[in-house]
Computed example of a mutant assay.
Amino acid sequence: MGGRGTFAIGNNVDYTYETIDNIEGVKVLSGKNGKHSLPEESHSSTAYIKLKPDGTFHEMRIYDENHYLIKEIAYHPEPAINNGDRKHNILHVHDYLERDNFKIRPAHLITKEEYEKYKKFFKGVPKHEKW
């Protein structure tokens, strides 16, 4: 997958991600050449997962039917919703409200419904029971 999963002025773009695993039918990607985040758009999938170096779930991006990013579920420090704590991982969600606007992405703690729907992907994340 190149750049944003597309072509650049009609030319193929070098792949910047590689598939390293599959969890419940969702590709686990790893960035190449210093690329650390997941793609802003998908090429063909409805979701991608990124793991921490120890194999623990780090984040999952979910895309709409047009392959645009609509939701990101993450397990890392998020001080804005965790009383300023920058050390402890917290399971949370960012909703992308506008297409191609990656700055407007409000965060909230994962809801019980979101947790139940996506928990099968949270490899290595402690069970969450605080609602």
Rank of each mutant, 00 (worst) to 15 (best):
S42N: 05
N33I: 07
N89V: 02
A74Y: 15
E59N: 13
A47C: 05
A74D: 09
S42M: 04
L51D: 01
P53K: 11
L109I: 15
N89T: 03
K120L: 06
N33R: 13
D100K: 14
G124R: 06
E40V: 11
Y118K: 01
H108C: 06
P53C: 05
A47S: 12
N33E: 13
S42L: 05
K117I: 11
S44I: 11
K35F: 09
I90L: 11
P106H: 07
F121I: 02
K117C: 07
H128C: 10
S37R: 10
K120M: 10
R105L: 05
G55K: 02
D64S: 09
P79I: 08
I49Y: 04
L97P: 00
K103Q: 13
K120V: 09
D95S: 11
G55N: 04
I90F: 06
H43C: 09
E78R: 12
P53G: 06
D54F: 06
I70H: 08
K112M: 09
K127E: 15
K52S: 10
R61H: 14
I70F: 13
P106T: 06
E78P: 03
F122V: 03
Y115G: 02
Y68H: 15
K119T: 03
K103I: 11
H76A: 09
P79S: 07
Y118E: 03
T111F: 07
R105K: 15
F102K: 08
H67T: 10
K35M: 12
A74V: 08
Y48C: 01
Y115I: 01
A80M: 10
D95N: 14
I110G: 02
N83T: 06
L109R: 13
Y68P: 01
R86P: 02
Y68G: 03
D95K: 11
R61P: 04
E59K: 15
N101W: 08
K112A: 12
K112G: 01
P106W: 07
A47T: 04
Y115Q: 01
R105C: 12
K87A: 12
K35H: 09
M60S: 05
V93W: 00
Y63G: 00
Y68V: 06
A107P: 08
N101R: 08
H128M: 10
K32R: 15
Y96N: 00
L69H: 09
H128G: 00
D54G: 05
H108K: 14
H92A: 00
N66S: 12
H92L: 04
